[in-house]
Simulated scan of single mutants.
Amino acid sequence: MKKIFVLLAALGAFCGSIQAQEKIPVLSTQELVNVCKLPASPESRSFCVGYTTAIYDTYLATRHPQRAKPYICVKQPAPARDDVISEFVKFSASNPQASDKPAAGVFLGFLAARFPCAGK
């Protein structure tokens, strides 16, 4: 029985080291822009809307209002998603240095610039 536990522990350590070395690809800003450019296929539009909405929703869900002041403040009524995505594509074209950066971070930066909170 001890041999089985030792074998399982060794196997777990081996698998853990393999996972630690695995590099997980991250969507670049240019890849997101390529998907979001208009006219887009229904599949591309769905991916673009879903991905950008998930970025913003994650920002809202993970920001603790008492510990971190908001830096993105979308006034209501909010602009249409397609308008915001189109602005992001233009923003990315005017900031080519960000094309190889992770899309989520650049999109959050764009949202912060486009929808700044009062008092900043």
Rank of each mutant, 00 (worst) to 15 (best):
M1E: 11
V6T: 09
L7P: 05
L7W: 14
L7Q: 09
L8E: 08
A9V: 12
A13H: 08
A13W: 11
C15K: 02
G16M: 06
S17E: 12
I18C: 14
Q19D: 12
Q19S: 14
E22Q: 12
E22D: 11
K23P: 04
K23D: 11
L27I: 14
E31H: 04
L32R: 04
V35T: 05
V35K: 01
K37I: 10
L38W: 03
S41P: 04
P42Y: 00
E43W: 01
E43R: 04
R45L: 13
F47M: 07
F47Y: 13
V49I: 14
V49M: 09
V49E: 10
G50A: 12
A54Y: 05
A54F: 08
Y56F: 15
T58K: 07
L60P: 06
A61R: 08
A61C: 04
T62E: 14
R63Y: 11
R63D: 12
P65I: 14
R67D: 15
A68P: 00
K69M: 14
K69A: 15
P70F: 06
Y71Q: 12
I72T: 06
I72Q: 00
V74A: 14
K75F: 13
K75Y: 10
K75M: 15
Q76N: 11
P79L: 11
A80N: 09
V84S: 04
V84K: 06
F91D: 12
A93K: 07
A93I: 05
P96S: 03
Q97S: 13
A98C: 03
S99A: 14
S99T: 08
S99D: 07
D100S: 11
D100I: 08
A103N: 03
G105D: 09
V106P: 03
F107D: 01
F107I: 01
L111Y: 00
L111S: 02
A113M: 07
A113W: 01
A113C: 00
R114D: 03
P116N: 01
P116R: 00
G119D: 00
G119M: 02
K120C: 06
K120R: 08
